[in-house]
Design a protein around this nucleic acid. Sequence first.
DNA 1: CACCATTTGGCAGGAAGCTGCCACCCGGTT
DNA 2: AACCGGGTGGCAGCTTCCTGCCAAATGGTG
Lengths: 200, 200
Amino acid sequence: MRDEQELFDRTAHLFTHADEVVCAANDLHTWATMRGNTDLPQPRRPGVRGRKIYRPQQLLDPASAPHLQELREAGMEIRISEREINETIIIDHRIAILAAGRGYTVLLRPDLVHGIKSLVEATWRTSTALAAYETRFAELRQYTPQLIELLASGCTDEKAAREMGVGLRTYRRRVAELMSVLGASSRFQAGARAREAGLV
Amino acid sequence: MRDEQELFDRTAHLFTHADEVVCAANDLHTWATMRGNTDLPQPRRPGVRGRKIYRPQQLLDPASAPHLQELREAGMEIRISEREINETIIIDHRIAILAAGRGYTVLLRPDLVHGIKSLVEATWRTSTALAAYETRFAELRQYTPQLIELLASGCTDEKAAREMGVGLRTYRRRVAELMSVLGASSRFQAGARAREAGLV
DNA sequence: CACCATTTGGCAGGAAGCTGCCACCCGGTT
DNA sequence: AACCGGGTGGCAGCTTCCTGCCAAATGGTG
């Protein structure tokens, strides 16, 4: 298929009957169009499972916030992947749609779909729930990157504080703050969670 | 294709001319057979890049050690993925081979291959270099899962040591050992790397 | 059993991390 | 000017973490 319109026209019926949809997207654009035409995966029927994988950039883009909100309200599970992902949709374990160049390819062969599905599932598992990101990260992202980088570099608090031109007390205060935000009670835990959240 | 033999017969020439091979396998069996018939990806020509992704189980299986050794000597890059992966080979960005059920499928369409490749690359990136594992992981794995779990739980060393029925000194020794394996000089860093390696 | 290597864990002393207290500086308000 | 809320950072005292040292336990070997 050559463009989104064609994809949309020919797959809309698949979505309306789907019991399970997994969808990975590098940018909102792809599915935004579809959504713009008709709220595609929505309205969703109860008992239907929908999952989406996005990239962190989406969270920083204010324009996409409403869309995410919409999806969440529709009961979608949303995760964020730090890794580059290929645009992919999998429907009911039976149908796989891959973005290829600027067209799309629909795969139906069960064995192929299964293979692709297992790859997507792997990405899903290594991704982070949106909630873990969003909750307090938006406001955190402004001043913590350097802090986390220093922490992750493994140097002592003293060096780190000097590095960011701040007193030891202040540095530690910020670490404590960060840990509280991450809900961590040890630095190891904090490190794990930071990494989990893709902040490292 | 229906079985390994057929796959082997029909793809051998691809390997001998390949400049880059990426390969993911859940068990050695798949490619072991091929290797048994003729040292397949080997002998490898200089300048050729070969990458393989395995599962941690391989490291525990003594039978596979020689094979891994062989691959490494052939200059293969080997990584370990904590995640379930689908058997996949990608040759020169042009050809993808997927295991499907008990047969195999060879894909040639550039767009499809590219899509699959990006998925495999994502898995590659989230995987851990064999070296990081093997060095001391084989023997470490017996008691580190619990250790990491305790560390990640955020409790103090004292509680953790009691929890795993071991002296405080021993517990800390193990933590130090783990950190050394992870190449971390702070617990935060260790947490981040452990998470990165999928050990959490 | 005696002998060895390895592992364990208590102890001690030091390094790093944590936090309450408080004085200080700064921009905004009254 | 006096006042105030918020961020800063030195200090002190405490907890936690780190590690070298060594004695005791453990587990094979000869």
